[in-house]
Amino acid sequence: MNWKYASQRKEYGRALIELGKMRKDVVVLDADLSGSTRTADFAKEFPEHFFNCGIAEQNMMGTAAGFAASGKVVFASSFAVFATGRCWDQIRQSIAYPKLNVKICATHAGITVGGDGASHQTGEDIALMRTLPNMTVVVPVDAQETYKTTKTFADWPGPCYLRMSRLDFPVITDPETPFKIGKGTLLREGDDITLVGCGVMVSRCLEAAETLEKRKISAQVINMSSIKPLDEGLLESAAKRTGGFVTAEEHNVVSGLGCAVSCYLAEHRPTPLRRVGLMDTFGESGEGEELMRKYGLTADKIIEAAEEVMKRR
């Protein structure tokens, strides 16, 4: 498919600036990566509302909690691996447990980080965040949805996690596409199987659905950007309609989107399912697209999984 590409990070920066213009209670924190996360865009416009905490993510999260406890809406950014893993206990104890208004907006998630390698990539951040009570977790499908999520987070009470990528990703939505926390979007209808993706993998699901169509398998595609809360109603109707699922995520298959979906289905409507994602492995250096192929984050893998599920339906 011929995609147009756009940057999630850029839209994050743009949304922050708009929030800064609209309201006085927004503060933005970063940890020496403001150029990459694009919080620098906000810092330029609103220097008094921006705080660079240096290379000290744990302290940044504690500081964010203090701001939030004082009535501010805090956006705290770094690379996903540092923004979640490095300071998980600070997030748990000082943000999630007291249910404070801290929006953790992380970039460079997944393996499309590329050359930096495994130390800077992360296939664990969704898992780490979604296991926290009170935490909202959104993985926007594209740049436009990143913009909407950022704006929505400002008014959504409590701790939130926003996952962004380093690479530009295919444009799937437009400014008019509705976005609601807790709601997935049915991007393509089909009767035989449901492909549920998040982030860049939604574009791979759409590609897979086209190929499957040619093989006489009618696949529907869901963009499940809201991982927590999960759109259970949509899963329910998809299960009823198609009776089979493939999930796809640029994340470890352990405890990510695939697990969220399969846990729901196992409890409420047992349905054959296969997960496509990082197969419990760390990444490595390489170009983003190369890594996607090497680690099986491809339309082909989704097709393969779909055909297997079809046999079990």
């Binding site: 390698g117 495994a118 130390s119 250096s285 390489g286 170009e287």
Partner: peptide, 13 residues
């Protein structure tokens, strides 16, 4: 350095 399958990862392994 930093190429796919290299032993010379972007950060030391």
């Amino acid at each position: 350095l930093r190429k796919l399958n290299t032993r010379l990862q972007g950060h030391p392994s």
